[in-house]
Design a protein around this nucleic acid. Structure first.
Lengths: 234, 234
DNA sequence: ACAAGGATCAAACGCGTGTTTTAATCTTGC
DNA sequence: GCAAGATTAAAACACGCGTTTGATCCTTGT
């Protein structure tokens, strides 16, 4: 049994106004959940910790969200909407694919490291990728899929191949890998790179570097003959 | 208290032959531990699960290794030695830095995906990077540091900058990021790339791609003027 | 052959977890 | 004002975890 007897809170009667005070704890719970999930991931996060930070009772999570997983998916849906939209939009409005890639990468890095530390949203995603929870399908549908689709299109246009060509896909993952690496292995990078710290200025430099590094490689690949007999594969 | 009262097993008297049967469970425990740690990481792995797979009693872990963390670090030290050496060696013997990078990357990918699935050793490392355990310093010293040092040297020679230059470091992490991504986010890649699977042939193709992608970028960066006033930075 | 002690085993301890229960409190429509 | 119902609160439940205990095997040196 995944979610045993999720006793949902009863709906308010239509027409009645929501009680500000009570709805407040719901929001506080989601916010606190974000912090805790970002620190330890879904599995290791504890309901007690979340409730303590939210200043709520232990039973509040089960009352408002059914169970721990319900709170987790609720947080994912809420934060995905407000974080994903702008990046894809600015890339979509770019005049050419090179500029689109530039905007996409800068948007990603800015999202990941706004204010010096990786944002809560990104850290939660990192944990989800490293150790998928039962909510992985939700994450994939709402955040991975749209990003992948956009990147496949941009990179395909730069190297002159269709979006679903295997070479396009490998190039996309070469780019994504660079982005993910900086937030995923941040603690190790700091160990291996004395003096490194994710200041806003450094974030911009890294974004510039990844953009340049990737664009050089993509343009080089465009002008090279496709290796072996891969042009027929997908 | 990190390790409360680690009651070490007493040494055999010198001159006595080791009992094959008894030392066998030690090895079985380490092997089973590798499997479990690879699947769920240090924190989520359970001693009961490990002992069950090893066909040993629950108390065996504490008797032979003091505690769960002792078993973990023992596995790390054992598997690091046999996995790290060959890659660095073959890169070291290469005639030029381009060939060194090629050998390094192919060695890494072959290590990561030998036999279709990521190796146990690599999967444990992935979890350790995503969610560091108290054994992180051991990992860093024995596996990260030597690899980073070698890569800094190779890349620095390719782009014509010192190993500790910030641009060298960023290029190294652009390369490492690509490698790590394929094992770290493997489940998501499979979702976003219909028909993808880590066959040995595909591993070779990916290794070829990452090598080509990176070499093009590195050579391009070498021939470009260093951006802005970064040449003085480290 | 036999005591000594290393290695194994079943059982339990103490603790932390997610969840449930039961009662008290607060808000709200009439 | 006052019951009705939504919301909180405190306590306990059932379970799984790492670890410990004490008895019991089994190997081994004498």
């Amino acid at each position: 049994m995944a979610i045993p007897a999720p006793r949902r809170p009863q709906k308010r009667r239509p027409g009645s106004e929501p009680a500000r005070t009570h709805d407040e704890t719901r929001q506080k719970l989601i916010a606190a959940a974000g912090e805790v999930f970002a620190e330890t991931g879904f599995q290791s996060a504890t309901v007690r910790d979340i409730c303590a930070r939210a200043g709520a009772n232990i039973a509040a999570v089960n009352y408002h969200f059914g169970d721990k997983l319900g709170l987790y998916t609720e947080f994912l849906k809420c934060s995905a909407e407000e974080n994903e939209g702008p990046i894809l939009q600015s890339a979509f409005n770019a005049p050419d694919p090179e500029e689109a890639l530039r905007r996409f990468l800068h948007g990603m890095f800015r999202l990941m490291c706004q204010g010096g530390a990786p944002s809560i949203y990104v850290r939660v995603m990192t944990h989800e990728l490293a150790q998928p929870s039962p909510a992985l399908p939700v994450v994939f549908e709402h955040v991975i899929k749209p990003k992948a689709r956009v990147l496949y299109g941009i990179v395909g246009r730069i190297i002159g191949l269709p979006p679903d060509h295997s070479q396009t896909r490998m190039c996309v993952h070469s780019i994504i890998g660079q982005v993910v690496h900086y937030v995923h292995s941040r603690s190790v990078i700091e160990l291996a790179w004395p003096g490194f710290s994710m200041t806003p200025k450094m974030v911009e430099r890294i974004a510039d570097h990844v953009t340049e590094f990737s664009l050089i490689a993509l343009k080089g690949i465009r002008n090279k003959p496709v290796s072996k007999a891969e042009s027929t594969r997908r």
